[in-house]
């Protein structure tokens, strides 16, 4: 899909703007490209989308698999606190798609995200944690 947000995947930046962060995150998630989505995370970032903390290659492998069926994410920011080079963002999310067996999938919940601004000024994901525990169906 075409991105309407301005993002350079060689130097990805979620920016300091909470609404723009959310929009970039949504568009890249909804593109279905797990490799691009993983670029929004710092190298040592921890993602709990799978229900367990994943980093590095395991995180990338999960994103590629989970996004392959192009689940569609909607998210609304519920709160946001910025303390210098780190931010805590709360979002309410809804995901609709089909599972690996082709059955409809609907997920809904809250997610806590920690973002970090690197020394080069770019903001990226450091930790995500869905409060329900996982983005996967029960």
């Amino acid at each position: 899909m075409a991105f309407t947000v301005d993002i350079d995947f060689d130097n990805p930046d979620l920016t300091a703007d909470t609404d723009l962060q959310n929009e970039i995150f949504l568009q890249v998630f909804n593109s279905g490209d797990g490799e691009l989505f993983d670029k929004l995370y710092r190298d040592d970032a921890i993602s709990n989308f799978s229900g367990e903390p994943l980093t590095g290659e395991a995180r990338l492998a999960f994103f590629k698999e989970f996004l392959a069926t192009k689940p569609q994410l909607q998210a609304e920011v519920t709160h946001s606190y910025v303390a210098g080079d780190v931010a805590l963002i709360g979002v309410h999310f809804v995901i609709d798609g089909t599972d690996s067996e082709g059955k409809p999938m609907h997920l809904e919940g809250n997610c806590t995200d920690v973002l970090r601004r690197g020394t080069d000024g770019r903001w990226l994901m450091a930790v995500d944690r869905p409060v329900a525990g996982s983005l996967l169906p029960e």
């Binding site: 970032a45 921890i46 709990n48 903390p53 780190v86 450091a126 944690r129």
Partner: peptide, 13 residues
């Protein structure tokens, strides 16, 4: 309850 620790940033519940 949970701790998620990256190089220089951590999230504790």
């Amino acid at each position: 309850r949970h701790s998620f620790v990256t190089g220089d940033t951590a999230l504790l519940i």
